[in-house]
Each structure stands twice: as C-alpha cells, then as structure tokens.
Design a protein around this nucleic acid. Structure first.
Lengths: 248, 248
DNA sequence: TGCCAAGCCAAACATATGTTAGTGGTGGAT
DNA sequence: ATCCACCACTAACATATGTTTGGCTTGGCA
C-alpha cells in the first residue's frame, strides 16, 4: 500500500483527519469512492426544498449558501459552506430536504452517491462517526447563529460572523496573514444576519470606520483580530477545531 | 425471547421506532443499557458550557431548555426538550459542551454512559444511524428557529413556536384534542424567541384576542389548528415525523 | 397570618432596524 | 459601443421592538 501522505489531497480525507487520524485502509476507502466532480456557476441551486437527493456533495472549491425561504418571500441563509464542507450530508439520513443549497460563487463540487457513503460507513464505523461528528459541528454553528441573531445587535452580530468565517477559513488554510477572500454580497449578508441590506451597509460602514475590518473588492482583512473578537463576543470553541489562533 | 411489545415502554425504543422499526435484538440491546434515572427540580442545570460529560440523558418526563449565554448576560434558548428527546447526545462525539442544559419543570431524566452508547452503536449500526438521524432532526429544528428569529416578526414567530411544540408533543402523545401542557414562562419564551418579556406579553395578548390560542394556567389550547398554522407559516416537514395532523 | 419572590400585565417612552426611493459605478451581454 | 443588471451606498422617514417602571396576583414559606 502506498504511504499515507499520497491520500491526503482528497478534501474529505482532510476534513475527517481534522477530527482524528485515519488508518490507511480508511483513507483508501474514501479515496476509492466514485465521486462525480461538477463545476457550477454562481447562484445555481444544487438541491431545493422538497427534493430527495440520492447523493451528497463536498465542496472542493468556492462558497455555498444553505437557505430557507419564507412564504412571504423572505429568505434566511442558515449557513455558508467553504472548501471541505458537506452542506447537504443530512440528506443521507433525512428523506426530504427542508432547506435549499445554492452556490454563492462559481464552485466545483464532488458528488458521492448515498449508496456508496452508506457502504463505506458500514465497513468503516470510524468514518461514520467522523461524518456524524461533522454534522454535529454544523448544528453547533446553527446554535451560534441563532444566538447571534436573537441576542446581539447588528454591530456585534456582523462582527461575529466575520470572526467565524475567518476562523473556519483559517482552519482549512484559506487565510493568509490577516486576509481572506470574502465573496459575499451585502444582500446575502443581510439574509444571513436577519437584517436588511440597508442596515448591513450602515453597520459595515461603522465597522470600517472603527477600524475593525477592511472589506474591499471581495477581500476581507482584519487588522486586529483580538479587537474584532472582543466586539463580536466570539468564542471559537463551538467550532470544535484544534487550532483557531492566527499562525504566529 | 419475549414478544417485542414488552420492550416498547422504553422511551428510547419509542423514539427510535418513530424513525424505523427495530429488530428484537436491537430493542433488547437498548433495554439492557444501564440507565441511571434521576429526578430533578425545576431550573437545575444538567450540564454547563465547558463541561465534558461522560454520559448523555434522555428525557423521561418534564421539559428542558438548551441555552447559550452571551457575555453581556443575555441568553438564547436554542431548543426545548420534551419526553423522548436526547438534548445532550452531541456530547457523545463533541468533547466540550458549547451550550448548557437545564430543566424548565421538574424532570425525570435517564442517564446512559457514553461507553455504553458507543458499545451499542458499534454492535448495532442501525441504532447508531437512528441516533445520528435524531441529531439531524435537532439541527433541522435549529434551522427553523433561525429562520423564524431572523425573518418573522414577533406575531408569527411566536405562533410558529406554538405550532412546533404542539406538533412535537402530538408526535409523542402529549396532546389531547387541541390541548397540551405548556409550562413555559413568558421570560423563557422571550429568551427562546429572541425578544423581551414585555414584547412577548404584548404579542401574546394579540394572539389571544385574535382567538388563535388560549394560554392559561400552564395549558395551551389551539381552537383552530389550520388558522394558527396559517399565521405561523408553519410547515411541519422539517420535523421529519410521519404523522403530524391532529388525530381525527 | 403575613411576607416575599415569581410571574403576568401594562403604560410611556427610546431606539435599533425596516422601508422606500433614489444615486452612481461596474462588468457582462448583445 | 451601448445597454442593462447588479452591487454598493445614502437620505428621509416609519415602525417593530427594547427599556424602564410599576401594579397586581398567586403560591410557598416562616
């Protein structure tokens, strides 16, 4: 068998290894799963409310949004997906989608049949456990968003979201120094934060003029991480990752 | 082996059977798990943020609240637990609690050691799958709350919560006709809905005077289910239960 | 019996946020 | 080259909701 490091390029291996070390046969099993890679434009639905998909996807590149629509035409973005995330893994066990998934940017996604996933899970219970765990982290993020939307005013609510995204991107190597891509429009930010685009703009100006963030041309930079963390009341433990401090 | 119906009294069996039928040996395995039953008064913490419990609980009787506290002293109740729920099952896979759990009413809880749960899960993968699935339903409820808090005004937001609780209680046989126990104070309601107690009171009066609910002495009755569903914009599919209509 | 905390309720006032209605810039499509 | 969407941004105004304060009732407890 090849040395294990040759497997490490697979995004799902990286994802699960961030939870606990995988044995070589476990990595091999993941690597051998047939995965259909697809490239999507921005703003394309991947799955919709009511669908019963027979496969789930992993984000190889780009950013996605999971959202729920209200009968009054409003929508709540309930999560952002970044590289390595499996934003519709729940459909493996829940028959009918109660939310929709769409691309925020051009994306490349890897689709794996549920039958394949189920087979791997029964043969390698530790992989099943790691996947289960990743859905529990998703749930923890939902709780954090709910707390932010329910209890924090716009200013710290938005700061909290910035902290979370930077922390998550940092965990998968998508942050250089104090800077990362931030391809989210103000309208999308509004749908995620439970406020209007107008108010998002207001709060954004305030965060900018207070020197907490620089957001320009789709790039976010955080001049002083600790200060942003303070105004956001951000505590990264809910993300359940090992390292969350910026690299020294 | 005894006929299967003798097992059905166990609340965890009931819970998992609502997902799919269990084989007799699976039921027997659940029944044989050592479970420590404890009775708690109202307003007692079961686990707290930062804890790393070595066991999880199932609610045998009473009602619980899971909550997250903000550094500014505010708290968001992120879920209510009713009979059959496993409100801290996540601690089986996530080392550190990112939320607290406390009793809303006097409760009787059954505690099962994680080691025992892990053993049963490896011996009976279908039980593991059912438990995983139940945590995914919890996550779906988080999404629904987030959507309500973020996008619905107080009136329909509160109506939505009433609908959800009645639907969930109905699914476990805790609703008679159009009436069920509702032991939640207005302050707790406020913490769950992301609004103040004063506003909860205002909205409650409005819902009452519009004839959508009767809430008195800890009992909730819904005179016209379909009308409440309409104002709440409630769609029960996110609960992922089989039956959600009132019994004829 | 009386006290006290908890819960429900309400009025008056304050404000964070929503709504409406624009402007100007930019990049892709034809 | 010219549109035409989309996006960022802003001002003026409207309102849902928060804050403060206090009264009333009830039930447990000394």
């Amino acid at each position: 068998m090849a040395p294990s490091h040759v497997f490490d390029a697979h995004p799902l291996v990286q994802k699960l290894e961030s939870i606990f070390a995988l044995a070589d046969d476990e990595k091999a099993a993941i690597l051998s799963m047939p995965m259909q890679v697809a490239t999507l434009r921005a703003d394309q639905d991947v799955v919709r409310v009511g669908d019963s998909p027979s496969r789930s996807c992993i984000i190889l590149e780009g950013m996605t949004a999971t959202y729920v629509s209200t009968s009054k035409g409003r929508r709540q973005i309930v999560s952002f997906g970044i590289m390595g995330d499996t934003p519709d893994l729940q459909s493996l066990l829940l028959e009918e989608m109660d939310n929709s998934l769409s691309t925020l940017t051009p994306c490349t996604l890897g689709f794996v049949q549920h039958a394949v996933l189920r087979d791997v899970c029964t043969r390698f219970p530790r992989i099943a456990a790691a996947l289960w765990r990743s859905t529990l982290v998703d749930a923890a993020i939902f709780r954090a968003w709910m707390t932010s939307i329910g209890q924090r005013e716009g200013y710290s609510r938005m700061a909290h979201l910035f902290c979370e995204l930077v922390a998550r991107k940092r965990a998968v190597g998508l942050v250089e120094e104090d800077r990362c891509a931030f391809p989210i429009t103000q309208t999308e930010l509004a749908d995620a934060l439970g406020m209007t685009a107008v108010h998002v703009n207001r709060v954004l100006q305030a965060l900018r003029s207070d020197g907490h963030i620089v957001l320009d041309q789709g790039w976010l930079t955080v001049p002083d991480w600790d200060r942003l963390v303070a105004v956001a009341d951000f505590d990264a433990t809910y993300l359940h990752v090992k390292e969350n401090r910026p690299a020294a």
